[in-house]
C-alpha cells in the first residue's frame, strides 16, 4: 500500500532537452547575451525607414501595373543574356564537375587527387558568385563571358560536391562485381558507378540550372552580363514599375524551370 501512496505524490516535469543544468543555463544566457548585443549593433534610422515606407508602398503597388513596355529593349536583351549564360554555364559546369566529382570521391580516387579536388570544391563553395564575378570582370573585361565563367565555376562547387557524396554512398558490392569481371578503370566507372548515380546527377543538374538562372540575375550588378544591370538601373532611378516587371519575369522563368525539372525528375524515377 505504501508503494501506491508514494506514487500518488510523485511530481512529473518534462525532462529538459539538455540534461546538464550548467550547460543548459549557460547556453540560454549565452544566447540571450548574444541577441542583446547583436540587436544593439543594429542602428535603425527610424525616420529614414518611415520615409521609406511610402516608397515601399509604391514598390508593392507597382506589381499591380508592372511596366514591361517602356524599357522593353533593355529588359529583353538582359533576359536573353541571362538565359544564354545560364544554359552555357550549366552545360560547361556539368562537364567539368564530373571528373572533379570522381576525383573528390574517397572510394575511387587516390589521396593526392582527392585533396586537390576537395580543395577546388571548397574554394568554389566559399566564395560568393558575386566576388568571383568581380575578379573575373577585372581579368576578362565586362560582358557575359565573365558571367559564364563565374557560373561555371560556382556550378563545379555545387555539382562536384554532391556527385562525390553520391559516389561515396554507392553500393560497394555492385561496383566490386564489375571490377571482378576484369573491367578497366573506365569500364568500371561506366558499369559499376554510373548507373547508380545517374538519376540523381540529372536531377541535381536541373536544380543547378534553376539556381544558375537566379544567380545570373545579379551578376549584372558588377558588369558580368545579364538582367541585373537593367534591374539595378531601375532601382537607382526609382522606376519601380520596370523593376516590378523584371521581377515578375524572373519569378515566372524560375517557376517554369522548377516545373520542368519536376517533370524530368518524375520521369527518371
Amino acid at each position: 500500500m505504501s508503494a501506491v501512496l508514494a506514487s500518488e505524490r510523485r511530481k512529473w516535469r518534462k525532462p529538459p532537452f539538455i540534461r546538464n543544468p550548467l550547460a543548459r543555463w549557460g547556453l540560454i544566457v549565452f544566447a540571450l547575451v548574444y541577441l542583446v548585443l547583436a540587436i544593439g549593433t543594429m542602428e535603425v534610422n527610424w525616420a529614414r525607414v518611415y520615409e521609406g515606407l511610402e516608397r515601399g508602398k509604391q514598390f508593392i503597388l507597382a506589381f499591380s501595373h508592372p511596366d514591361f513596355a517602356s524599357r522593353w529593349s533593355d529588359i529583353s536583351a538582359g533576359m536573353i543574356e541571362s538565359i544564354i549564360m545560364t544554359i552555357t554555364s550549366t552545360a560547361a559546369g556539368i562537364i567539368i564537375s564530373i571528373p572533379i566529382g570522381l576525383g573528390a570521391a574517397r572510394n575511387i580516387a587516390p589521396l593526392p587527387v582527392y585533396y586537390l579536388c576537395r580543395g577546388i570544391i571548397a574554394v568554389s563553395r566559399a566564395l560568393h558568385e558575386i566576388i568571383v564575378a568581380i575578379l573575373l570582370v577585372a581579368i576578362f573585361g565586362f560582358g557575359p563571358l565573365a558571367g559564364f565563367l563565374t557560373l561555371s565555376f560556382a556550378t563545379i562547387g555545387f555539382l562536384a560536391k554532391l556527385l562525390a557524396e553520391d559516389i561515396e554512398s554507392t553500393d560497394r558490392s555492385q561496383s566490386e562485381a564489375v571490377k571482378a569481371t576484369g573491367a578497366s578503370w573506365l569500364q568500371w566507372i561506366n558499369y559499376g558507378i554510373q548507373p547508380q548515380v545517374m538519376p540523381r546527377l540529372i536531377g541535381l543538374s536541373m536544380y543547378r540550372l534553376d539556381i544558375n538562372f537566379r544567380e545570373s540575375a545579379i551578376l549584372g550588378l558588377v558588369g558580368a552580363g545579364g538582367i541585373g544591370a537593367t534591374l539595378n538601373t531601375a532601382f537607382d532611378r526609382y522606376e519601380f514599375d520596370t523593376a516590378a516587371a523584371i521581377i515578375v519575369i524572373i519569378i515566372v522563368v524560375v517557376m517554369a524551370l522548377e516545373y520542368l525539372s519536376g517533370m524530368i525528375r518524375a520521369r527518371l524515377q
Partner: peptide, 26 residues
C-alpha cells in the same frame, strides 16, 4: 507547457505501474 493536473499525473503513474513500465516514464 505540460502543466497537467496532479491527479492526471498520479493516474498516469498508476497506469504505467499497472502495465509494468513505471521505471520507463522519462
Amino acid at each position: 507547457f505540460r502543466w497537467y493536473p496532479q491527479s492526471d499525473v498520479d493516474e498516469a503513474f498508476r497506469l504505467l505501474e499497472r502495465v509494468g513500465l513505471d521505471h520507463m516514464a522519462d
